[in-house]
Design a protein around this nucleic acid. Structure first.
Length: 788
DNA sequence: GCCTTGAAGTTACCG
DNA sequence: ACCGGTAACTTCAAGGCG
């Protein structure tokens, strides 16, 4: 018997002689890649009887005999906080769980079948507090290594592994990107070969080409892949494109795309991702889709945004013309460099983001390869499921529900104009703290019919929902734990030098804990959630509204002028003494923490809510909600608005800004604005045929579809409004790739509907009107005057 | 038949 | 595929006017 410490990279299971074997793939302390198997765990689910326990046991016993029933064990659990006698149904094989679940549900006296939809390796990890992306200690016996398993050693767990924590080991990263022949439009894997594959590792970038045929390219790639034997496989849009494409092409060439440490191919798995057994396959596009700072999430834009690869320092080419670069021998080198740059960017993004992914994976409990692929709701849910297990709570089933709406937060109407020296006060974790304070939870909710003494419940304002004060509800326990853990991490960080490895890990960890904490309220009002309850979400926002109103009331009482507020923040003139008084009042009388989040030396509002701009104490310009920070306005309008904001805030000279707008409009009319700055990007939020109105981007997408492009939901459509086509904007909207010259552009549209609105959004307040920025240039006017 | 107006459809933001 | 609140665009049909 030996002792082993390993860092869990991936989990899977297999059936050996009709019995399941959990497989934990990892890295040990000496950097060996290891597999720890555990054959001692069996799949199970719970039955909650509505009738007599004994007779349900008998019924289950006969109904499940055919499904490899191993045991029926009465167990005490809690369901929505109430003790229930339930039956743990243990089976031989995870694959029979779905059928056994159906059979169990039909047994007379069975109320509910619970936790029958939890994947076997997840069940194993939850029950044993084994966490992905974390170190574990385990007593093992070494096993002979089967030929198909590519690890340094295989061990049989003698006991269950124990979570121990610690910094992650050094992992081998392998980023890759493929290029496909696309002479006939979108490359089709049935038709078009892969022509290049680039990969980037710590060692550098390499590009393989199909000069000697596609089969040899794929073989070369496989050989390289195995020579690196990576722990983390990185791609950009790889789950939707590169991997399925490569798989298909490998098969067309009679090859197997053996990438897994179990010699298996990538397999379609949960949340639309491909799993590569024994490794973490991460599609960084999933991460990028959550990056709010980048609007158009191309690989090069994301790499630049993260400060990794400047677009000016890499090869960029029109992806639809990849085939030309392949067909023309003199251009192949450029294509190779493009491909290499993509792989390198992917590698660098992966390297940058991995520390956060690792922490989120450990905190939430989802394997590293699933953590970005899973939605926010699913991440919260997996965290909750682990917590439920710890508290002996049964996990409610997911089910379809109709969506119910409810009232949300309050947004104040701002006081228009430039305000000086303004402090923004924010409630710290407002919703989590409300849920904790009033014990808001599905298991503490008291439905209208139920009689409970008034002093035993909290009653939500406006909506009247009641929640028991005691015992602590599930959400309260979970949120208190999350807040406690985060405080603890932040406390530890303060004792460390900010440039230390440990500090950086903790920084990522506190971020991970924070995102989970902040998502719990939203989760509670998400109809598909297992722990959904409209009343919970509704009561939370109701208390939030009262809280912010009371805060505003007191602020005004002590003479603090409230300029604006949204949900959990208020903007006031920064009078430090009064602000301090307000902070103390909120803490002592309302029981919540409020902090000065930022201070604007100047902040500008129009009448509109959720849109403003300001100058921060450090000199930075902050733009919130306005066109300049939106992804669906042409770059030209955003640039102009940004400039206008800067001039108005820094120089306080709106007429100077107006002059700037006027000169840029002149540039547009004379064709001096590059076409890229005129592209308007909009997401196709539905399938093309589901649209009721032909909006400009829908029309543009239809044109693309006609040309043979694959159009899909979620796609960003970039269009330019041209002169030719008809009266409606949509009739003149052309996919940007079809617009070749500034002559085609409808400059008037851009002036009237893009530049003027964006500029006037700010300038109108100062008395500047459309004619002031669109009239002919001053020189021309003077010329006209003297010339006639 | 043309123009105005407001509702509906649509997207992306804020916190 | 976490929530509701919000602004702002374009389309589209109804209504007013002549």
């Amino acid at each position: 018997m030996e002792e082993l410490e390993f860092w869990l990279l991936d989990a899977s299971y297999d059936i050996i002689d009709g019995l399941p074997e959990v497989q934990l793939w990892g890295v040990d302390k000496s950097g060996r890649r290891v597999l720890v198997v555990d054959r001692s765990f069996r799949p199970y689910f719970y039955v909650v009887p509505s009738g007599d326990l004994e007779s349900v046991m008998r019924g289950l016993s006969s109904a499940l005999a055919a499904y490899g029933l191993l045991s029926l064990e009465p167990v005490q659990k809690k369901y929505y906080g109430k003790p229930v006698n339930s039956i743990k149904v243990v089976l031989r094989n995870p694959r029979s769980v779905p059928e056994a679940r159906e059979a169990a549900a039909k047994v007379r006296g069975v109320g509910e079948v619970l936790e029958a939809d939890i994947r076997f390796y997840m069940r194993y990890m939850v029950d044993n507090d084994i966490r992905p992306s974390a170190w574990h200690y385990v007593k093992v016996k070494e096993l002979p290594k089967p030929a198909n398993l590519h690890v340094d050693a295989v061990y049989m767990a003698v006991e269950r592994p124990v979570y121990v924590g610690g910094p992650p080991p050094s992992l081998r990263l392998y980023a890759f990107d493929i290029e496909c022949y696309n002479r006939y439009g979108e490359p089709l894997p049935e038709r078009d070969p892969v022509i290049m594959i680039s990969r980037a590792t710590k060692e550098g970038v390499e590009t393989f080409t199909a000069d000697s045929g596609e089969a040899s390219l794929i073989k070369e790639f496989l050989e390289d892949f195995w020579s690196v034997d990576p722990d983390v496989v990185l791609g950009y849009n790889s789950n939707r494109f590169d991997i399925p494409y490569l798989l298909k092409r490998a098969h067309e060439n009679g090859l197997k795309l053996k990438l897994g440490r179990n010699s298996g191919e990538p397999a379609q798995s949960v949340y639309g991702h491909f799993s590569v057994v024994g490794r973490a396959n991460i599609d960084l596009y999933d991460y990028a889709s959550e990056l709010v700072g980048v609007k158009l999430k191309t690989l090069d834009a994301v790499a630049e945004y993260l400060g990794l690869v400047k677009r000016s320092e890499r090869v960029l080419l029109d992806a639809s013309r990849v085939y030309e670069y392949w067909d023309k021998p003199e251009l192949r080198k450029t294509l190779a460099q493009y491909s290499a740059d993509d792989a390198r960017s992917t590698y660098l993004i992966g390297e940058t983001v991995l520390p956060f992914a690792i922490q989120l994976s450990e905190v939430v409990g989802l394997p590293l390869d699933q953590i970005f692929a899973a939605s926010v709701g699913n991440r919260v849910e997996w965290f909750l499921m682990r917590q439920a297990f710890k508290h002996g709570e049964l996990v409610p089933n997911s089910r379809e529900r109709k969506e119910e709406t409810y009232k949300g937060a309050i947004v104040l109407t701002p006081k228009p104009g430039i305000h000086r020296n303004v402090a923004v006060l924010d409630f710290s974790s407002m919703y989590p703290n409300i849920m904790i304070k009033y014990n808001i939870s599905p298991d503490t909710y008291v439905p209208p019919g139920e009689e409970v003494p008034d002093e035993e419940v909290y009653v939500a304002p406006e909506v009247g929902h009641r929640f028991r004060r005691q015992p602590p509800g599930f959400y309260r326990k979970v949120l208190e734990e999350l807040l406690r853990v985060r405080r603890e991490i932040v406390r530890k960080m303060k004792e460390l030098p900010p440039d230390s490895e440990e500090y950086r890990i903790l920084e990522e960890r506190q971020k991970a804990v924070k995102v989970v904490t902040n998502a719990v309220y939203g989760y509670s009002g998400w109809a598909p959630a297992r722990w959904y309850m409209r009343e919970v979400a509704e009561a939370t926002t109701a208390w939030g509204r009262v809280l912010i109103k009371e805060t505003i009331k007191f602020a005004q009482q002590i003479g603090l002028n409230v300029i604006y507020g949204d949900t959990d923040s208020i903007f006031v003139y920064y009078d430090p003494d009064r602000v301090q008084k307000l902070i103390e009042y909120v803490e002592q009388n309302l029981g919540f923490e409020i902090k000065v989040d930022k201070v604007y030396t100047k902040v500008f509002f129009t009448e509109a809510k959720k849109r403003y701009c300001g100058l921060l104490a450090d000199g930075r310009v902050d733009i919130v909600g306005l066109e300049a920070v939106r992804g669906d306005w042409a770059e030209i309008s955003k640039d102009i608005q940004e400039k206008v904001v800067e001039i108005v805030l820094r120089d306080e000279d709106p007429w100077k800004a107006a002059e700037y707008v006027r000169s840029t409009i002149a540039d547009l009319y004379s064709g001096r604005i590059p076409l890229e700055k005129l592209i308007i990007w909009k997401t196709l939020a539905k399938e093309l045929d589901e649209y009721e109105v032909d909006a400009p981007h829908v029309q543009a997408a239809k044109l693309l579809a006609k040309m043979g492009y694959r159009i899909y939901k979620g796609m960003k459509i970039g269009y330019i409004v041209t002169k030719e086509g008809g009266g409606r904007v949509s009739e003149r909207a052309k996919p940007y790739v079809l617009v070749r010259s500034p002559q085609e552009v409808d400059a008037e549209y851009y002036v009237k509907h893009q530049i003027v609105p964006a500029a006037l959004r700010i300038l109108e307040y100062f008395g500047i009107r459309e004619e002031h920025i669109t009239s002919t240039r001053r020189q021309a006017t003077l010329f006209d005057f003297f010339g006639t």
